[in-house]
Amino acid sequence: MRIMIVGASQGLGRAFIEGLGDRSDHLIGVSRSVPARLPERAGIEIDWIEADLALPEQAARSVAEAVEAGGLDVLIYNLGLWESRAFEPDYRFLNDSPAEIQRIVTVNVSGAILLIQALLPALLRSSSPRIVLTGSTSALPGHGRPEVAFAASKFALRGIAEALREGFREHHLAVTCLQLGYLNTEDDLTVPVEHAARRGDGELIPLHDVVQLVRTLLALSPSAYVKEVIMPAIGDARF
């Protein structure tokens, strides 16, 4: 299986690189710069593509060219920017600059659409093509957050997913939205999950849980898919 993870340099994207795939699989990381040292995993090939989705047309073209020959089975679009004061008590929409808002929409929405469009010819050659879009509980009604651009961009992912399913239903394209709550990005996969789960007193999701969830999605037969997963932390009072 050839799996591409966009936004793979840190946080959840890095955890996907370190935790997805089985022997003989091929992982392809995408980020603005190539890490100085790529992860090494026995029996799994790991490559990297340098691309800046703030320049979505150029990035989409270069990424598609890089995988054209080898093909692709899974695309995980994990890239998502948020406002500089997002999730802070002093966040105010009126303080967001137009440039920051535009960058969020460009990377989170335009980047996703243009990259998917460029990669679809390669994906549709797969016997079981899958797209996983990393969304947020901020895309859900009653999410209780004031960040406008971030929420709007995550709402957009649901529309992208719905349209792709309809447009490529005859190709059996599986598209899943992960609506994730607050993540514990302090503890990587080397930290035992029972320790990572203690951080935040139940208000943060260990990366281990998200990786395990996506492993399950990728293990489904070509006849099944999961449309949407809503995954808040157990202590998140909003849900």
Rank of each mutant, 00 (worst) to 15 (best):
L123A: 05
L27T: 02
F150I: 10
L207V: 07
M231Q: 15
A15K: 05
S9N: 15
L94K: 12
N184I: 03
L220R: 05
R2G: 02
S136N: 10
I44C: 00
E166V: 06
P98R: 10
A66P: 05
V63C: 02
I116G: 06
I160N: 03
L173I: 09
F16M: 07
R199W: 00
P39Q: 03
Q212V: 01
H143V: 06
A139P: 09
S33A: 12
F155L: 13
V226R: 02
E83D: 13
E88V: 07
M4P: 02
I131P: 04
L220W: 00
Q179F: 08
G200S: 09
G71M: 01
E18M: 08
V74G: 07
H171S: 12
P121G: 01
R32L: 04
L157E: 12
G7T: 08
G202Q: 07
R61E: 11
G71I: 03
M1Q: 03
S24P: 00
R158Q: 15
V132W: 00
A69C: 05
E147K: 09
L180M: 11
F155T: 11
D73N: 14
A36W: 00
T106M: 01
N184R: 07
H208Q: 15
L120V: 04
L183V: 04
A66F: 03
E83T: 15
S9G: 08
W48C: 08
F93K: 10
Y77G: 01
Y91N: 06
L213C: 12
V229E: 08
P141W: 00
K154R: 14
Q179T: 08
A219C: 01
G111R: 12
G80F: 06
G19T: 08
T185A: 11
G29Q: 03
P192K: 09
E57L: 06
H26R: 10
D188H: 06
E57R: 13
Q117R: 14
G80C: 09
N78I: 09
R32W: 03
M4W: 02
I44S: 00
E162V: 08
I3L: 10
L180N: 11
E83P: 12
A161Y: 01
I205S: 07
D236Q: 07
S136K: 10
L94E: 14
F87M: 15
D187C: 02
G19D: 06
P98L: 07
D90Y: 05
L94G: 02
E166C: 10
G181H: 06
R85F: 05
A36H: 11
R32I: 09
V148T: 14
E100W: 01
I49S: 00
E228T: 13
D73V: 05
S97G: 13
T185S: 13
G167Y: 00
S128I: 05
G11C: 04
R41V: 03
A15L: 04
G181D: 06
G159V: 02
S24F: 00
E40T: 10
L220Q: 13
V67G: 03
T137L: 14
G19V: 08
V191M: 02
S110N: 14
I104F: 06
V63R: 02
I5C: 01
S223Y: 07
L178S: 05
I205W: 01
L173Q: 09
I113T: 10
I3Q: 04
A54W: 00
T190E: 12
I101D: 12
S153M: 10
L180Y: 07
L119F: 05
E45H: 02
